[in-house]
Design a protein around this nucleic acid. Structure first.
Lengths: 168, 168
DNA sequence: CTTATCTTTCAATTTATTTTGAAAGTTCAA
DNA sequence: TTGAACTTTCAAAATAAATTGAAAGATAAG
């Protein structure tokens, strides 16, 4: 396979993975492009490579920055902005998880918390099942949180010791 | 808070969580409704409760079945189909992860594998970074897989022993 | 069979999301 | 200041995804 072909396939693949997970396809493609680029790129280069408009490129670059997946790389004596991606995919994955947790899981947990303020007088089988489901969901979220936390700390300590034996 | 209000909030919240994660909002709402229902429901009841069309209800119910999140509950002497949801949220979560892995991660891993068939002659910094990124992603996926596997087995053995100390 | 009851399909429509590109905004060197 | 170089915004247009509902397809009872 030729390099350019492989590059295209990767960008497409990453894009479609993203869009399946509720992430803008173009954003994922910009991310993919920067991931495999050994040098930081300008907005123009990204527009050219992915054949997208300036507005689109700009918006997705900014969004990627707020996700903590890419950074501006300002080169002295150059007014153009360059962008580069965090290349350590473990860090990137943790970043994505952290961000999504904050954006989507926390609001749900907020709602679940409020739902426990059900009037004490509310009775009936329906209410019982409702409470049970809410408790159950909170439980699973708590466990997932704890597991992710462990995972994240395991990676931090990767070089320090045998923490990763947990994940062998 | 009144029960009906709480119920609505939960269904809406679950629905919007789903849609943020690339899951049809209505599908998530149907799932939510069945999760908190102590009895299995008919298509008609679901249509009524969520104010959706028959086609929509049918399609999402079928999809939930292929995800392994709900089942048909056929009552003898009754031609109507009833539906009920798996109520153990841990099982449901694992089911969702398994399914998404199969649908979205495996195709990507397939592509990544192919991308390693890069012509040996392909040289240059770009190619080096490309290979590095691919390897790195494969690595993260492998670790995530292993962690999930551990997690899943940990839950299976929950009642049997101290497996969960790993996740404290 | 035939009919009543229920489920599935799918083309047309509606709704939601993404993208464009031109205009407005910003920044900096001269 | 000015204006060239660059970035950001956002209303309109394009695209994608979800929904409807009527028709077709099953199925079982009589």
């Amino acid at each position: 396979m030729k390099f350019d072909e492989a590059k295209q396939k990767f960008i497409q693949g990453w894009g479609s993975l993203g869009s399946n997970w509720g992430i803008n396809r173009t954003m994922a493609q910009v991310h993919a492009l920067l991931l495999i680029s050994p040098v930081s790129l300008t907005t123009e280069e990204i527009m050219e490579e992915l054949q997208i408009s300036r507005g689109n490129a700009n918006m997705n670059l900014r969004e990627l920055i707020t996700w903590g997946l890419i950074r501006k790389d300002l080169k002295p004596g150059n007014r153009k902005e360059f962008f580069y991606a965090e290349k350590d995919m473990w860090k990137a994955a943790m970043q994505i998880i952290k961000e999504r947790r904050k954006r989507e899981l926390e609001p749900l947990m907020q709602v679940l918390g409020e739902l426990k303020n059900l009037d004490k007088e509310e009775k009936g089988e329906g209410v019982r099942e409702f409470r049970k489901t809410i408790d159950n969901i909170e439980d699973v979220i708590a466990k997932a949180d704890s597991a992710l936390d462990k995972l994240s700390r395991a990676q931090d300590n990767w070089l320090l010791g045998g923490m990763m034996k947990l994940l062998k």
